[in-house]
Design a protein around this nucleic acid. Structure first.
Lengths: 210, 210
DNA sequence: TACGGCATCGGCCGAACGGCTGATCTTAAG
DNA sequence: CTTAAGATCAGCCGTTCGGCCGATGCCGTA
């Protein structure tokens, strides 16, 4: 087990909790991201407990270096943070973390998360999980449409959502600019959108593009 | 707390674990899905603990009836099952479950899951979570940025991605239209975007918004 | 056959966008 | 103290967007 947190109190708190466990051993506790990477590579602990907000390298960068895509023989990383921000959550998961805990979690969850990570499993704070599940559970029906989009309109939506201009959409669909604008008009009406970015946002939310 | 499981031993086992907790009370324990729905509607427990494989109605059907989309005043449902099947997991989440536990989890996780559900949060078994995260983390690698966006630029990006006009962004951030356009200029350069929809697309792909 | 939905095209016009240059102020780093 | 980076603001100007009007042709159904 390696602990990385810039706050002295948090480090020692974690260490006391973990040292009380017969099956856990803290091999190093550091206060910044660069040291975390160095120690992790030197000691190769089973699990790394990383804060996000740290000097030099933040926890997500450290995770990328230790467990990110392309890393050979990645370590297990559990992110522990005070802040329940979506960017942190998704950033952590993309970086290769196998756990995400808020600091307001009890010690029970902390221990469970570490044991899970040691087995290659992942435990995420319940208050975070509930939001993740919402995204998984309803990739469909973000907006009940009075009138569904036609196939051709969906073609236009998909290209719009990828950042194409009307001219480019016209070229890729082999139609004129006027036609694209006509389809767009229908799309605006049906979705109740006020500009093309709202169309794009709807497309991403509803899973029309991915 | 309501327990529904067709196996006598499991029901009593759960009941013994839960009765030992001062903050929990099992108000009913039934052995099939139809009874679970009836009891849940009559007693309206804070949390329902449901097995999936049950006579008459399976746990997922029960969940749909008690917590599914369109249900007014939904109950909190934790699914407990022996079988770690993807269909079960996704089925449970789509049905409206706020927790998913495998029966090989320890009593600690069971209690944590129930307490989380009571708060409206969701705890999922670590071995299941790790697979869910792979699906979430899959659309990774949107674009490694030469220069990262500043905090303020991210504020602008988030609002742009939600379809706001420059004027609206200015109003919501309490700055002038000129400032927004300046930030946008930097964003265009850093992301290599050609229009605001490409900025929005980057934001959605990278998880800056969701 | 007549009707309606869909796809296709054109023009006009005001508003919004995006690129450009240049400026002040604060804060952090060297 | 000097320098660099970030946040703030301003004007100009060409392009794109989005709304609105109208029009033609195809196809399936009533």
């Amino acid at each position: 087990m390696l602990i990385a947190d810039d706050q002295e109190l948090v480090r020692t708190g974690f260490q006391m909790i973990l040292d009380a466990q017969p099956d856990m051993e803290v091999v190093s506790a550091v206060s910044d991201g660069a040291a975390a990477v160095a120690e992790a590579r030197r000691l190769r602990p089973d699990v790394c407990l990383l804060d996000i907000r740290m000097p030099k390298l933040d926890g997500l960068e450290v995770t990328r270096l230790l467990a990110g895509p392309g890393v050979t023989d990645p370590l297990r990383v559990v992110i522990v943070t005070t802040f329940d921000l979506d960017e942190y959550v998704y950033g952590a998961l993309r970086s290769g973390a196998t756990g995400f805990l808020l600091k307001d979690s009890g010690p029970t969850l902390l221990l469970e998360a570490i044991r899970a990570a040691a087995h290659g499993d992942a435990l995420v704070s319940p208050s975070v999980t509930v939001r993740l599940l919402q995204h998984l559970a309803q990739p469909a029906a973000p907006k009940p449409l009075d009138e569904p989009l036609t196939d051709r309109e969906l073609d236009v939506v998909r290209l719009i959502a990828r950042g194409r201009t009307n001219q480019e959409v016209a070229a890729e669909l082999f139609v004129s600019l006027s036609t694209v604008k006509t389809h767009l008009g229908s799309i605006f009406t049906k979705l109740g959108a006020r500009n093309r970015v709202e169309i794009a946002a709807w497309a991403w939310e509803s899973g029309v593009v991915n």
